[in-house]
Every structure is written in structure tokens, then in C-alpha cells.
Simulated assay, not measured.
Amino acid sequence: MRIENWWPLLDSSTQQWLINNNGDVVPLSVLDQIMAVAGQPTADASWVGDNVREGFFLSDEAIDWIEKTANDEVSEGE
């Protein structure tokens, strides 16, 4: 599932956390909420970035999309 599809299903506090902390390690509580609506992250999901020792990161594509969304730059086609 693409970020455009699961984003509206998140509660507003989770969306705000992702906007305020865009590019940071995603805490398990936030990742759990994403997985509740988007399913398990798979390597081919466009929103999945690195899962390293420090934690889980969203992909560069997802980070850019969140930034555009925060700035009201996302068009209907994206």
C-alpha cells in the first residue's frame, strides 16, 4: 500500500508526529499505527526505508511526500 492510501487512515496525532519529525527514526508506537492501516512493511513498499540498528526509517520518497503534504503541495494525482 502506498503512503497516499494509508496516510488518510492514520489519526491526526500520528500524521502530525510524522510531519513534525519527518526523516527521523519512526518510533515503534508510530510504526505500529502505520502497520495497522498499511500492513506489514515489505522491501518493495515505496514508503519503507532503512530498518537499521537505530530503528525504522521511512523512504526518501515517503519523506518527500510528507513534506509536500505538510506544505499543501500534494496534487490529486500523486
Rank of each mutant, 00 (worst) to 15 (best):
Val48Asp: 00
Glu78Thr: 12
Ala43Glu: 08
Glu76Gly: 12
Ser12Pro: 02
Glu67Tyr: 15
Gln15Arg: 14
Asp24Cys: 08
Arg53Ala: 07
Ala36Gly: 09
Gly23Phe: 14
Glu78His: 12
Glu73Ala: 09
Asn51Tyr: 14
Asn21Cys: 02
Gly39Met: 11
Trp47Pro: 00
Trp7His: 02
Asp24Lys: 13
Trp47Ser: 00
Ile19Phe: 11
Trp6Lys: 01
Ile63His: 11
Ser29Tyr: 06
Glu61Arg: 07
Glu4Trp: 06
Val37Lys: 03
Gly39Lys: 10
Val26Tyr: 09
Leu58Phe: 10
Met35Val: 02
Arg53Glu: 10
Asp64Gly: 04
Leu18Val: 04
Ala45Leu: 09
Glu54Trp: 07
Val26Thr: 12
Val74Gly: 05
Trp47Thr: 00
Ser29Lys: 07
Trp6Arg: 01
Gln16Ile: 08
Ile3Gln: 11
Leu18Gly: 06
Glu61His: 08
Ala62Leu: 02
Ser46Tyr: 13
Pro27Leu: 01
Gln33Ser: 10
Pro41Phe: 15
Glu78Gly: 05
Asp72Cys: 10
Arg2Leu: 14
Val48Met: 10
Gly23Gln: 04
Ile34Arg: 11
Arg2Thr: 04
Ile63Asp: 07
Leu9Thr: 02
Thr42Ala: 13
Asn5Ala: 13
Met35His: 06
Leu58Pro: 03
Ser59Cys: 08
Glu67Cys: 09
Ala45Thr: 04
Ala45Ile: 01
Val26Ala: 05
Ser59Arg: 01
Trp6Ala: 03
Asp32Val: 06
Pro27Cys: 03
Lys68Gly: 06
Thr69Glu: 13
Met1Arg: 01
Asp32His: 11
Leu28Thr: 05
Arg2Ala: 08
Pro27Val: 00
Pro27Met: 03
Leu58Met: 12
Leu58Ile: 13
Thr14Phe: 04
Phe57Asn: 08
Ile3Tyr: 11
Ser13Asp: 06
Gly55Thr: 04
Trp17Phe: 06
Gln15His: 09
Asn71Gly: 01
Glu54Tyr: 11
Ser29Pro: 01
Gln33Thr: 08
Asp11Phe: 13
Asp60Glu: 11
Trp6Ser: 00
Thr69Gln: 13
Glu73Lys: 11
Ser59Tyr: 05
Trp47Gly: 01
Phe57Leu: 15
Val52Ile: 15
Phe57Ile: 03
Ala43Gly: 03
Ile63Thr: 13
Asn22Phe: 07
Ser12Asp: 06
Ile19Thr: 08
Asp64Leu: 14
Leu31Tyr: 03
Asn5Ser: 10
Ser59Glu: 00
Ala70Met: 07
Gly49Ser: 02
Ala45Val: 02
Gly55Met: 03
Leu31His: 02
Phe57Gln: 03
Val48Glu: 00
Trp65Cys: 01
